[in-house]
Nucleic acid binder design. Structure first.
Lengths: 233, 233
DNA sequence: TTGATAAAAATTGTATACAATTCTTATATT
DNA sequence: AATATAAGAATTGTATACAATTTTTATCAA
C-alpha cells in the first residue's frame, strides 16, 4: 500500500474546512495547496502569485496566503522581490547543479550514521524497488516511490534534524524529477542503481553502499541536466 | 522607533540587489533586531515572545513582527506552538549533536569543491587566525572572527546554494558558540586546528585539509556538549 | 512610430479590527 | 486545603482597511 503522503495532485482549489482539518491553521492548508500546484506544474515556473487573486481563489483572506508564501520562499519554491511580490521560481540547471551534490552529501551522512551493519529494512527496500520498476511510465507514481525508497533507506537515522533538512531540500527539487521520471529507461537505471545499494547493504559493506548511492545521485543529476538543456533554459 | 543595534554577525547577502537598498521592509529590520537579541542572549531561551508586546516595544504593528517571527522559526531560533504563539527555542545538546555533523559535511563538500589546488586566500586565513588568537577573552569578537575565517576558507566555492545553506545553519548554532568562545583555552585549540587546515592547503593536500577541518568541527562539538552538560539542560 | 510622461489602476506593505482559542483567576464544592 | 470549573482577560488566527509603491494605460511631442 503506497502512501503518497504530501504528494496529492487533486486540483479542487477551494480550501475546505472539514472536521478533520479543524486543528490546522489556514496558512498550513494554503501552503500545502500551493505546494501541490507548484510541484505538479499547475503553477508554472515564473508565474506571478498575486496575493489577492490567490486569496479569492482559495476563499480565504490575504493574511494566511502571505504567511504560506513566506513559508514557501524559505524552501525556494517562490521568490519575493521587494514591493513586487511573489512568483514561482524558475527551474534552472544551476539549481540542479547546486542542489544535487548537497543532497548527495547529506544522504551519505545519514546512511553512514546507520552504522556499518545497516539496520535498514532491506526487504522493504527490495519491494519498493520492484514497485518502482513497475511504475515506469507513470512519472507521478515513480517520483512518489523513489522518494519513499530513499526515506525508507534513511528512516532509521537518529539525526532528526538531518532527516528534516533532507526532506526540505527534496521538496525543492521535486519539480525537476518529472523531467527524469518521464523517461522509462532512466527509471530503469535508477532501479538498478538502487539494487546496487541494497546489495552492498546486505553484504554489510557500507563504503560500497555509499559509493553506489553517490552513483545514483550523480547519474540522476547528469540526466536531469541533459533534460533541462533539451527543454532550453 | 526601531533601535538598530547592528551587531552584524554577518549580514544577509541577497542576490540581485543593487547597493542602494536603503528601502528595507520593516519585517527585515524587526527580524534583525530580534535575531541580535536572541544571539546576544538578551532574549533568553524559553522566553515567551508575545506579538503585541514586541510590536509595541519596537514601535510597529503586529504584522511585521509576525512575519519576522515566521522567518526566525525557519532557522530554528524560535518555535511556534499552534495558538500558543512563539517562544525562543531552548538550547539543547541534541541540537548540537545533530547540527554539527551536518555543517561538517557541508563545509567539507564546499572545501572539496575548491579543487585540489586550493584557490583559497591563504594569507587572509593566516591573518584572521592571528586575530582570532588575539581576540581570546572577548567571546563576541571570537565568534565573529571564527565565522569570518570559515567564510574566507569557503568563499570561492562556486555553489552559492551550498554557501547560503551553510550560513543559515551557522546562524542556528551561533547561540551555542558563546559557551565555547568564553574559554580562552578552547579558542587556542581552534586556532591551532585552523592552522593545520591552512598548512595542508598550502601543501596542496586536500584530503589532509579536509581531515583537519573535520577535526576542528568534531572537537568543537564535543567541547560544546561538555559545556552544555555543565550548564545543565 | 517612438519615446517620454503623467494619471489611473493594481498590488504590496503595514496597521487595525474582530473572531477563536488559550491562559488566568476567582469562586464553589468536597 | 485541594480540586474543579466557569467567568474574564490575554493572546493568537484571520479579515479588512488604509498607505506606499509599482505597473499599466493614456496622452502628447518629436
Amino acid at each position: 500500500m503506497l502512501d503518497l503522503e504530501t504528494i496529492s495532485f487533486g486540483n479542487d482549489s477551494e480550501i475546505s474546512d472539514d472536521a478533520s482539518s479543524t486543528k490546522t491553521p489556514l496558512r498550513e492548508e494554503v501552503m500545502q495547496t500551493l505546494l501541490n500546484k507548484i510541484i505538479s506544474g499547475e503553477l508554472e515556473p515564473g508565474a506571478k502569485l498575486t496575493e489577492s487573486k490567490l486569496a479569492e481563489e482559495l476563499g480565504v483572506s490575504r493574511t494566511p496566503v502571505r504567511e504560506a508564501l513566506f513559508y514557501l520562499e524559505r524552501d525556494g519554491f517562490v521568490k519575493n522581490d521587494l514591493a513586487k511580490g511573489f512568483s514561482v521560481s524558475q527551474l534552472s540547471a544551476r539549481e540542479v547543479r547546486e542542489s544535487f551534490p548537497i543532497l548527495e552529501s547529506l544522504e551519505v551522512l545519514a546512511l553512514r550514521s546507520l552504522g556499518p551493519f545497516a539496520a535498514a529494512n532491506v526487504n522493504e527496500l527490495k519491494r519498493l524497488n520492484q514497485a518502482f520498476s513497475k511504475a515506469a511510465g507513470n512519472s507521478n507514481e515513480c517520483i512518489a516511490i523513489d522518494n519513499l525508497w530513499h526515506e525508507t533507506l534513511l528512516g532509521r537515522c537518529p539525526n532528526q534534524r538531518l532527516l528534516a533538512l533532507i526532506k526540505n531540500l527534496k521538496h525543492a527539487i521535486m519539480r525537476y524529477e518529472h523531467l527524469y521520471m518521464i523517461d522509462a529507461s532512466l527509471v530503469a537505471m535508477s532501479v538498478s542503481q538502487h539494487a546496487a545499494v541494497i546489495k552492498q547493504l546486505e553484504a554489510g559493506n557500507m563504503d560500497a553502499a555509499v559509493a553506489a548511492l553517490e552513483t545514483n545521485w550523480r547519474f540522476s543529476r547528469d540526466a536531469m541536466l541533459v533534460r533541462i538543456g533539451e527543454t532550453s533554459y
